[in-house]
Design a protein around this nucleic acid. Structure first.
Ligand SMILES: NC(=O)c1ccc[n+]([C@@H]2O[C@H](COP(=O)([O-])OP(=O)(O)OC[C@H]3O[C@@H](n4cnc5c(N)ncnc54)[C@H](O)[C@@H]3O)[C@@H](O)[C@H]2O)c1
Ligand SMILES: NC(=O)c1ccc[n+]([C@@H]2O[C@H](COP(=O)([O-])OP(=O)(O)OC[C@H]3O[C@@H](n4cnc5c(N)ncnc54)[C@H](O)[C@@H]3O)[C@@H](O)[C@H]2O)c1
Lengths: 208, 208
DNA sequence: GAAACTCTGTGAACGAGAACTCAATCACGG
DNA sequence: CCGTGATTGAGTTCTCGTTCACAGAGTTTC
């Protein structure tokens, strides 16, 4: 399923809608209006309608959106209907935290592969996953894994990225502070915690 | 120092510029052009000039930007000239990773306070920081701490946020998946790892 | 010291995304 | 089966941010 031209911002909101729908109190009614959805998620209701309208007529005028149908529809758009396996590269401070986290299941994503460079960590088993050495990255395509999470030092990131791309990985979540150079058909999403934190002082009252 | 009207996007790029300047090979030349800076950071050169021009004449035509002067200037804009102490709330998987991380020093930010709810963790000392109980949050204003990092379960986030705001905190880095309701003078920056990860499958080739 | 060259700063054009508005649509009750 | 009320979907406007283009300031060269 691919659609004409959908803003990236819309895609970013879809998982948020999904989470909102899950937590919506299922008191009798089977449907939810764009206004109710907007209230939960703290966006405006025209925003919700516009976002959803990119993907065809999902709602019914006068009623709203059928909760189950909408949920399934959003999952289909995001390709979250079947479980996606993801590979974690770098089992350090951050990598360990991500691996222990169980919340990605909401989005049908499961880390089931871990790569490391440090020989002392290779071979260890965490949450039933055996930590493998980085050279095994090339086997990702065979295993049908096309999502990777990068949690290694910045200096090594481009090198490992190239290996991931060669192994057929199509989406990378990058916690590194480096810019990753990838072919056009590979999607990188960056999370730069340091930069986000560094922005905060700007907004503080002067001298605080 | 406060400026007329600067786009949030510009502020978000300033820490990136800062990091780029630090890593710029200091081979003889004391200055750097908007083009060179743009190349390092993978943005366009007019973007760099526009961003910097919001804050007055920093560069010199025909030459570029004096590296030292520019660095100091950006630090001043972001209020990163003196060290900011930050409080971490929640010493779980993610909190522990953040506390161990040493990279925030680049931006003059230092986590020096940790709050927990779990009695088994309270009192422990990590990296010379004694983990305190959440009720101590109210003492933050006395200690001159106005930045907090939220790494606790979503269910508790609004409650703790209210306490932080009452204690005079003006900036919150929120790793929780909840929307935080705060007064207008408090800045919240959200990092929702789950949502970022959930976006990736959309961009994969269909059926991958 | 003038001419040629380099690079900044900024107003103006452009584009993307958010918010607004309203006609078309559907459920429901009489 | 038609009128009423609710709510969607989409065309339009508005806002924000990026890109462009060029005038002007500074530097170097001869
Ligand atoms: N709180 C945080 O932990 C935090 C905050 C902001 C940014 N980051 C960024 O996230 C990344 C990871 O941070 P961290 O704190 O977990 O670092 P870390 O040093 O604790 O862990 C890095 C791990 O990657 C492994 N590694 C190194 N090179 C590798 C390679 N080529 N292939 C596979 N594994 C390799 C190391 O052995 C180590 O276990 C860094 O880029 C860091 O800047 C982390
Ligand atoms: N990889 C990750 O760890 C990850 C990924 C995505 C999102 N998150 C989000 O980050 C947050 C923290 O995740 P985590 O994995 O570290 O969870 P965690 O359960 O490991 O840690 C939470 C910690 O917060 C403490 N806590 C609970 N209530 C508190 C309160 N009121 N005051 C102070 N401390 C309190 C708990 O005692 C615990 O130590 C969650 O909201 C989670 O959804 C984490």
């Amino acid at each position: 399923m691919r659609y004409h031209k959908v803003p990236d911002e819309t895609i970013r909101r879809l998982p948020v809608y999904l989470r909102g729908l899950c937590s919506f109190p299922n008191n009798g009614s089977h449907s939810i209006s764009s206004q109710q959805l907007a209230d939960i998620l703290h966006v405006k209701s025209p925003q919700v309608r516009k976002d959803l309208s990119y993907f065809g007529d999902i709602g019914t005028p006068g009623v709203g959106y059928d909760i189950q149908k909408l949920t399934k529809h959003i999952r289909a758009i995001l390709q979250l209907n079947n479980v996606h396996c993801a590979a974690l590269v770098g089992y350090g401070n951050l990598g360990a935290a991500l691996l222990k986290y169980t919340g990605f299941g909401t989005f049908c994503i499961e880390i089931n592969t871990v790569f490391e460079k440090d020989p002392r960590k290779i071979g260890r088993v965490v949450r039933n996953i055996k930590i493998e050495e980085v050279s095994k990255i090339s086997s990702l395509s065979k295993r049908g894994i096309s999502i990777a999470i990068l949690a290694i030092p910045a200096a090594e990131s481009q090198d490992v990225t190239d290996k991931l791309v060669n192994a057929g990985v199509g989406g990378i979540l990058n916690f590194t502070s480096s810019y990753l150079s990838v072919p056009a058909n590979v999607k990188v999403i960056n999370i730069d915690i340091g930069v986000s934190l560094a922005c905060l002082p700007y907004y503080l009252p002067v001298g605080a």
